[in-house]
Simulated assay, not measured.
Amino acid sequence: MAYVISDECISCGACEAGCPVNAISQGDGKFVIDADLCTECGACADACPVGAPAQE
């Protein structure tokens, strides 16, 4: 399952910078992950200071 970003997102951009496949972009008030591009590597979750990205 692809990762999703919860409402805990603080819009710091750490997850976007950490994503090796550029599946993350700025959405309305938080970052979002394109499920079609997500390879489920977990780099976004490792980079996030608040643990917002998680697998569905």
Rank of each mutant, 00 (worst) to 15 (best):
A54R: 15
D34C: 07
D46L: 14
P20D: 03
A17M: 12
A54C: 09
V50I: 05
G27Q: 03
E56P: 15
T39S: 08
P53F: 08
C15V: 09
G51E: 13
Y3W: 13
C41Y: 04
G18Y: 01
A43M: 04
I5D: 03
F31H: 15
A54Q: 15
G29V: 10
D7I: 02
C19T: 01
L37S: 11
I10W: 08
V50W: 07
I5N: 04
I5W: 13
G27R: 12
E8G: 06
E56R: 12
E16D: 10
V21F: 08
V50A: 03
D34V: 03
S25C: 01
E8S: 15
S6L: 05
A43V: 00
D28S: 02
C12G: 14
C38M: 04
A35Q: 14
G18T: 02
I24R: 12
V21E: 02
S6W: 05
C19S: 04
C9F: 06
D34M: 01
C19I: 02
D34S: 10
P53C: 07
A17L: 12
V50E: 09
N22C: 04
M1E: 14
I33A: 02
D28H: 05
P49L: 08
C9I: 07
C19E: 03
G51P: 14
L37M: 13
F31S: 00
G29C: 14
V50S: 01
G27A: 05
G42W: 03
K30Y: 15
A52S: 15
E8Y: 13
C9K: 06
V4T: 08
A2N: 06
M1G: 12
A14W: 04
A47P: 00
V21P: 04
E8V: 15
S25W: 08
G18V: 05
E16I: 11
A23G: 04
S25N: 05
E40Q: 06
I5S: 07
C15K: 06
G51I: 13
E56M: 11
A17Q: 10
I24V: 11
D46M: 13
C12R: 12
Q55V: 14
A2R: 01
C12S: 13
V32F: 03
E40W: 10
A35K: 12
P20S: 00
E16H: 10
A14L: 01
G13H: 07
E40Y: 05
